[in-house]
Design a protein around this nucleic acid. Structure first.
Length: 271
DNA sequence: CGCCAGGACGCCC
DNA sequence: GGGCGTCATGGC
């Protein structure tokens, strides 16, 4: 990745990024496609940072109305620009199926998202579809001026007061998550750096967090790239292409490989 | 209309 | 420990 500063924009060159593939592949739910790119509210540790980013041609991106300082301190990290995805894909392509998946959507990157936002988002995701997940999160943020609520704010709610979300049986799970994070029962930053099995166990003490959601929080919200969420789509991939198990050489980055496979199998069946 | 969704829980055996 | 019905809601 290299970048240049131009007026109030940052021009980024990065061949291993595609906005459609990265921002609308089911790892993040708050990016909206607008005329000139994607717009979103991104939750950092303490504030909601907004960004408009557009893709002008293959490998070229404009980060609109941002400063070099903001780009370097926030967005460079969020888009995982310090990781060499070309090298990752070369490694993955040792495997035939992964080679096809990387070739199909080579512009996917693993975003480094906020753990709290991911926890809530993937609790909502259970037994749900992506358009509706986006709708629920949109209503949630809409209640806080467009920002993602802090644990303290959400901890004030109960299942009834969250009825406006129309999140169904998940509302009580959101309340439990907010209560535990706000009270300190759950320390997300400690979990993020804990041994992964301890981290899994701790996350699953939250109601509504099972194996799949815990794995998603670890992967998308804590950048634990060895985490490997298995949903209905990945089950199909494993059954069809990896009857003898997922290849060992990819296990250290299994979660990133999973992103390519997820996108590949989902779009394969659409045709 | 019925089937399904980036599943987890509670109960059963 | 594994199997199965249930859970709200709405996209398709």
């Amino acid at each position: 990745m290299d970048y240049t500063v131009k007026n109030n924009d940052i021009i980024v060159h990065e061949p291993d990024l595609d906005l459609d593939e990265t921002l609308d592949c089911g790892q993040a739910f708050r990016w909206k496609k607008i005329e000139r790119g994607y717009e979103c509210t991104y939750t950092g540790s303490f504030v909601n940072d907004r960004l408009t980013v557009s893709q002008t041609k293959k490998g070229e991106f404009i980060f609109h109305d941002t400063t070099e300082s903001d780009f370097l301190s926030k967005w460079l990290d969020y888009f995982d620009f310090n990781t060499d995805y070309s090298e990752l894909k070369r490694c993955f392509s040792e495997d035939e199926t992964l080679a096809k998946a990387c070739g199909f959507a080579g512009g996917i990157r693993l975003l480094r998202q906020d753990s709290w936002e991911c926890l809530i988002s993937f609790i909502i995701s259970q037994n749900n579809n992506i358009p509706r997940i986006k709708g629920i999160i949109d209503r949630l943020c809409g209640n806080y001026g467009g920002d993602f609520p802090e644990p303290e704010q959400l901890a004030k709610e109960n299942a009834d007061s969250l009825a406006y979300l129309r999140s169904g049986f998940r509302a009580k799970y959101l309340c439990d998550a907010a209560y535990k994070v706000n009270s300190g029962d759950i320390d997300l930053s400690a979990i993020a750096s804990a041994p992964i099995d301890e981290a899994r166990t701790a996350l699953k003490t939250i109601k509504g967090v099972g194996p799949k959601v815990a794995e998603c929080v670890l992967l998308f919200g804590m950048h634990r790239v060895e985490a490997f969420p298995v949903d209905v789509w990945i089950k199909r991939v494993l059954a069809e292409y990896y009857p003898n198990g997922f290849p060992d050489f990819a296990k250290d980055n299994a979660g990133i490989a999973q992103q390519y496979l997820f996108h590949y199998i989902r779009n394969l069946e659409k045709e």
